[in-house]
Design a protein around this nucleic acid. Structure first.
Ligand SMILES: [Zn+2]
Ligand SMILES: [Zn+2]
Ligand SMILES: [Zn+2]
Ligand SMILES: [Zn+2]
Lengths: 146, 146
DNA sequence: GTACTATCTCTAGTAGCTATAGGTTCAAGG
DNA sequence: CCTTGAACCTATAGCTACTAGAGATAGTAC
């Protein structure tokens, strides 16, 4: 009845690489699955569910440590969901902060690009602005994480 | 006349950590500066200018490899600035892509948070949505780089 | 001279994978 | 049954851009 997936099929099912799944197992995020006679990993439906949960949370930008916390919450259905909601709110706030930084960045980049009228490097507004922050509108930029 | 800065002062001047400057030297982004009798690094104005250029470009989100390219352009003032402008435009496009992804993400997170009316984990919309992408509005999310 | 800080080199750690090497297992075709 | 090729196994190293520490030396203030 229960169809078991090899790691390749599992990866395909959730849209990630094979090594990513092994990595999640290695760091203890995903329990070690059963193995075939030839020592190959076999994932049951529960394992696939957990893997999808992890991947989906990653796609929504949650860091792995937070996903760990979310999983242990998800494993206790009768608990209050306050903690889960708080985690999601915090994630939303993080995303908002990143958005603000990126938007400010975008404005400066656009200005740089617009102001350069071409010509030689000596007069290039792009190079000039990179060398001189006082040409920026923003008081200061936070370095974006990636 | 030329005032030389120790690495600590240099770090302070450009707003980064001491180790970051040593790192830039190590990867060949910043030339090895002169040294004091006691083997401590001493940065002249030109070195500080280059360091500020690097830091400012980082603050605007340019990756180190791109900064390498920008520096070698900046070192040839009589060249056309086409290449520099193209780099800046590409960076702007990258930022735009990241912005779009983040905005889509933000919408999903907000929806998740809004839909949960509290209660137990068993009925938590946050946990439920994380486990089931069909509850999302977006067809698919790209994983945001941080 | 003694304390305290800053600097030196070297190494390892961070997040979240991704890629490779060198070897086994599995499924299909003949 | 045998072979071939894909998929799997482990273990290790690499990626970006730093950051943190250990243990030793240099510089500065009193
Ligand atoms: Zn230009
Ligand atoms: Zn600036
Ligand atoms: Zn909830
Ligand atoms: Zn989704």
């Amino acid at each position: 009845m229960m169809n078991l997936l090899t790691i390749g099929r599992a990866a395909e099912a959730v849209g990630c690489k094979v090594q990513t799944i092994r990595y999640y197992e290695q760091i203890g995020l995903l329990p070690s699955p059963s193995r075939s006679g030839g020592n190959q990993r076999l994932y049951d439906e529960e394992a696939i569910r957990r893997l999808s949960f992890i991947r989906h949370a990653r796609e929504l930008g949650f860091p792995l440590q937070t996903i760990r916390d979310l999983i242990s919450l998800a494993d206790n259905p009768e608990y209050s969901c306050e903690a889960a909601d708080a985690i999601a709110k915090k994630q939303l706030e993080d995303v908002d902060r990143r958005l603000k930084r990126l938007q400010a960045l975008r404005r400066e980049l656009e200005r740089m690009v617009e102001q350069c009228k071409g010509g030689r490097i000596a007069n290039c507004r792009v190079i000039e602005t990179l060398g001189d922050h006082t040409l920026c509108e923003a008081k200061n930029h936070d370095i974006p994480k990636v």
